[in-house]
Design a protein around this nucleic acid. Sequence first.
DNA 1: ATAGTTTCTGCAACCTTTTGCAATTACCAT
DNA 2: ATGGTAATTGCAAAAGGTTGCAGAAACTAT
Lengths: 140, 140
Amino acid sequence: MNQPEDIVNKLSELGYRLTPQRIMILSAIENSNDHISAEEIYAQVMAKYPHVNISTVYRTLELLKRLDLVTETDLGGGRVRYHPAEKGHHHHLVCQECGIIIDLDESLLTSLKDALLREHKFIADLRHLAIFGRCVNCSK
Amino acid sequence: MNQPEDIVNKLSELGYRLTPQRIMILSAIENSNDHISAEEIYAQVMAKYPHVNISTVYRTLELLKRLDLVTETDLGGGRVRYHPAEKGHHHHLVCQECGIIIDLDESLLTSLKDALLREHKFIADLRHLAIFGRCVNCSK
DNA sequence: ATAGTTTCTGCAACCTTTTGCAATTACCAT
DNA sequence: ATGGTAATTGCAAAAGGTTGCAGAAACTAT
Ligand SMILES: [Mn+2]
Ligand SMILES: [Mn+2]
Ligand SMILES: [Zn+2]
Ligand SMILES: [Zn+2]
């Protein structure tokens, strides 16, 4: 259960510089209850630090992804959304017809993950997936 | 086993107009041996029909996706790739470290598809998936 | 063949995300 | 505290993809 502080320390231990931009971007992600977009992070940081540029937001997200601190997921709707990596390994079913998003437990993908490791020695990143298709209502 | 001609007929039966653009875009997709990008389709069509615009390529792809005639898959590398829907329901493992792409048989996802249908009555579109992670070499 | 209707296209503008580059800043050593 | 240096940032431009709109073209009926 990482706190924003722990992540900040981790960045610093790994040799990354602790800029005010990074710290504010991190806390925007950590304070968000669910999936947050780059634009939303940008707006939130800009409120306190108007000088920030959106390319810094994207570059920081790139870094946090590379360090496995956030997950990136396309839930449809034209912009990608981000999630602290430690906040529950769950998944989502996304209906392409009506847009409804159904939450899915991690366990439904464990056997797939195991099979990929066993049969292909491939370590699949299945921490926060979106699976597209049609929901009950839309498939009638 | 659809031929380009069958797809053309299907479009026409459904009330869509058979424009030269659509026909050329379709044959570019059908003649491609593996995954083709919008840019590649555009270049191929433009060679015979220089007047075409890339937004027509994207709009045609949108239509073909909606009719389940092509699948769209992000295999990494910055641009989405397209595939005739009937050409084998297989999948790909994509290594985020070295970029290698491993082919995967359809069967590995059937139990997931069944479980989603059983437990959530959700018809998942698992026809041509890309699963990201780390390959054997890169996970040592 | 012609005209009417509606779909489809090209174009331009836009949106989200990425990138090269020069200037700035965090960090380290003094 | 000060200066050196490498990482990081802002900015501007670009890349990939989408959208509104007015004109062009496919289909239908005559
Ligand atoms: Mn989630
Ligand atoms: Mn494929
Ligand atoms: Zn639905
Ligand atoms: Zn690899």
